[in-house]
């Protein structure tokens, strides 16, 4: 091969730094963005291990005195605000439970896209007043928090709970607005579950369910209300619901259980809808015994403690007594 037949090499063009940047930076950015998008959709590569329950912390115990015997006070007939004041006064006032500087989480039942008068959600006036009292006692913050079954923004707005909480100076959070903390609930069915962050990190937690009919557990009350504290595959929890409710009661030990019976839902629960299903009872109970609280709530629906299997399990697990009248404090 003679030299003449060699291919002619074009002159080498000096490429400046700027040109290199210009050529390479955009495709690199685009590539990283694409890979990031793919990772975001498909998840991390590598070996995935289910979280072990042992390594996770348990929910805190929010009771004032775990050794003390639980009590229950009921107050009726004067509207939610006065009923609450009266019942709390018999237990030493909110100051006995909420100390200055504490972060308080209030857990209403705010599950449904329903108005207050339909009695599917906790009464907003009661939530507002409770938040006001906690802040008055010096709480650093009060958060009203629930994992709603319907769209949470609509549930909080239409129930009136958002407005009542904001008026009182409390904030609201729900599964769309806040994160979760993975905790070990420590039961035979309930292992590692995601718990709404404001509840997991609170210094005091007040459980404020409403008394409602429920077709499987007969009534939905305080322990069933903890369904709204956890995030995950909740529908599966209904197959052994009594055991699950009791285990939730073991995992979550609230400072107070406030049962809202301003109006109760006697049928079509837990969603209700028709006003014909609502019965005005105008009562509030404040309890440090969650089992007594549920037993009292059940009595309003003409149910004996034995009608609700979770009450017996919870009593056996040492959470309190089903004989609520024995631990009742007179107002």
């Amino acid at each position: 091969m003679s030299e003449k037949n060699l291919p002619v090499i074009d002159e080498y063009r000096a490429i400046g730094r700027r040109e290199v940047l210009r050529q390479w930076v955009p495709p690199v950015i685009a590539g990283v963005a694409l890979a990031g998008l793919g990772l975001g959709v498909s998840g991390r590569p590598g070996r995935h291990q289910p979280p072990s329950a042992e390594a996770l912390p348990r929910p805190r115990d929010w009771r004032i005195d775990p050794e003390a015997e639980g009590q229950i006070v009921t107050a009726c007939g004067r509207g939610p605000t006065t009923n609450l004041h009266q019942a709390l006064a018999a237990l030493g006032g909110i100051e006995a439970f909420v100390k200055p500087g504490e972060r308080v989480a209030i857990k209403p039942n705010c599950a449904w896209d329903r108005k207050a008068e339909q009695a599917a959600n906790t009464d907003p006036e009661l939530i507002g007043e409770l938040a006001r009292l906690c802040l008055g006692a010096g709480a650093a913050s009060v958060t009203v928090v629930d994992n709603s079954c319907h769209d949470p923004r609509r549930a909080f707005t239409r129930s009136g709970i958002e407005a009542a909480a904001r008026d009182a100076g409390a904030s609201i959070e729900h599964q769309r607005s806040t994160g979760t903390v993975r905790l070990n609930l420590g039961g035979s069915i309930l292992g590692p579950w995601k718990v709404l962050r404001p509840i997991a990190e609170a210094d005091r937690v007040i459980n404020v369910p409403i008394v409602k009919h429920h077709s499987l557990s007969r009534a939905t009350l305080g322990m069933k209300n903890w369904f709204g504290a956890v995030v995950g595959r909740r529908p599966n929890l209904h197959q052994r619901i009594a055991q699950v409710c009791a285990e939730l009661g073991v995992a979550f030990r609230p400072t107070l259980t406030v049962i809202d019976a301003t109006r109760i839902l006697t049928g079509g629960g837990p969603t209700g809808g028709s006003l014909a299903l609502v019965r005005p009872t105008d009562c509030v109970a404040v309890a440090t015994d969650p089992v007594a609280a549920d037993a009292w709530g059940a009595s309003l629906l003409d149910l004996a403690p034995d009608d609700l299997p979770h009450i017996a399990i919870a009593a056996r697990l040492g959470l309190g007594t089903a004989d609520w009248e024995s631990v009742r404090v007179e107002t």
Binding site: S215, L216, Q239, G268
Partner: peptide
């Protein structure tokens, strides 16, 4: 196996899902 979730969730009144 017991389960009533569809009935529990049903938002109509009366509920369209009945047991």
């Amino acid at each position: 196996t017991p389960c009533i979730v569809c009935e529990e969730m049903c938002p109509t009144s009366p509920k369209a899902v009945w047991l």
